[in-house]
Design a binder for these strands. Structure first.
Lengths: 239, 239
DNA sequence: ATTGTCCGTCTTGCATGCATGAAGACGACT
DNA sequence: AGTCGTCTTCATGCATGCAAGACGGACAAT
């Protein structure tokens, strides 16, 4: 099976992961040669990977000036959240009608885990399970294209969400909202599932002000290029 | 001004246009050398362009086997329509609240043109104006990210929509639905605008059966590779 | 006749090399 | 001293070259 993966694809995935995980912060310069060395290839596959990431909005390539991790300003982040809300809302709507019994069981299991971890109190651990929770719903939509689109937008936002859950009480609120969504899903109520999910994602009400005030956290830089240091493995962050 | 555009970007746009306009049908093989000749470059920028298009879902690159224009089966098309409906719905919702007076005037003007062309009766001419109509609403959302996302999904679907309007009465129905949307927009009713737009895009009710039955029109091929003939300019279609 | 194997050809994936254009340094001039 | 202009340096954009893998055909065996 193991479908052969080209180096450019591997690198694209690795870089996307770096960006999503916050190892490559917005504004960081992505030097072709450095990356080539880091991955042990020539510049060619590096360039192809960067082009792919650029096409998906993860990096920006300014002709003759190199590639940088896209830095979104507050406005753009809010714009993406607006999109995210309807996409996840649609996932929930479709999932409410289409999830199989097995998938519903999965959902409940993951949700229970979320509740447990929320009580435990570590936001980062909860974050991981929270992601799984949403993934289950993406899959439950039985719409592959939607699944991919939603994940892509989610990934683009991820550098800006990491700290969101570190706010006091945000985790508790999150699981509570999950709980409502789960109920609607299990009852098979598409309208309610969609609307609850939209509200869960959307930065309406209290979420907004909190978020914006804490925003610009991951160096909402736009052009500063603290050149991604070439130490193989993980880029060191320059401050 | 004229921001410098690299060849790979030019080619990517040109190829995307070929695909959207139906000049490169799904399943058509995109040979690197042929394209390189056609654009008067080497294979390198061609490859970069193809990688970009692949990242956006327009072409599929099978390692060691080359690139083909993505062929969507009925199911995938319907999946994309589900996405399209909520994205355009969101555009309408936001536009209802955010359009400036100038944009509203624009909307009315384009809508009037649509009505005129609909009466004239040529579906292809109407199609172009219809596209502009929707573009005005994308812009009216004042959400750039949404605008781009929506346009991208629209473009991915375009090979499959071209003939949609050739159905008897479809044009008339389209303008009627536009009319309802316009009214909601001008009245500033976000909920109604969104819901009407969703219905307009969505293939619910009669739309669905008609569409599906006429579907698979643009050679819903998946692997057949009628090798894109190299005649510079436009690819000739093999049957 | 059909199927399986082998081989030739061709395309892709990647490495390397070169020219162009941009950023930064240095010096001259106001 | 500050500003402007030139020059140097370097990274990018693209061309070219080479090796590995895939497709197709021929041939042999059943």
């Amino acid at each position: 099976m193991a479908l052969p993966e080209t180096r450019s694809e591997q690198m694209a995935r690795a870089l996307e992961d770096d960006i999503c995980a916050g190892r490559a912060l917005p504004g960081v310069r992505l030097d072709e040669q450095v990356l080539a060395q880091r991955f042990g290839t020539s510049r060619t596959p590096v360039r192809e990977a960067l082009k792919m990431l650029a096409a998906q909005g993860f990096v920006e390539i300014r002709p003759r000036q190199g590639a940088v991790v896209v830095g979104l300003d507050v406005r753009q982040v809010l714009e993406l959240f607006e999109i995210m809300a309807v996409l996840e809302g649609l996932c929930a709507r479709l999932a409410a009608r289409r999830m199989t019994p097995a998938e519903r069981a999965d959902l409940m299991a993951v949700h229970a885990e979320c509740q447990r971890l929320a009580a435990a109190g570590d936001p980062d651990v909860y974050y991981a399970m929270n992601t799984r929770f949403h993934e289950v719903i993406y899959a439950g939509s039985h719409n592959r294209q939607l699944e991919e689109e939603t994940r892509r937008v989610r990934n683009r936002l991820s550098p800006y969400r990491r700290n969101q859950l570190h706010q006091l009480g945000r985790v508790a609120k999150s699981v509570q909202e999950h709980d409502d969504v789960v109920r609607a899903l299990l009852e098979g109520d598409p309208d309610r599932a969609e609307s609850l999910m939209r509200r869960h994602i959307g930065i309406q009400g209290d979420g907004l002000s909190d978020f914006v005030s804490n925003m610009s956290t991951p160096q909402a830089v736009s052009n500063p290029q603290p050149a991604l240091a070439g130490t193989l493995g993980r880029p060191t962050i320059v401050r």
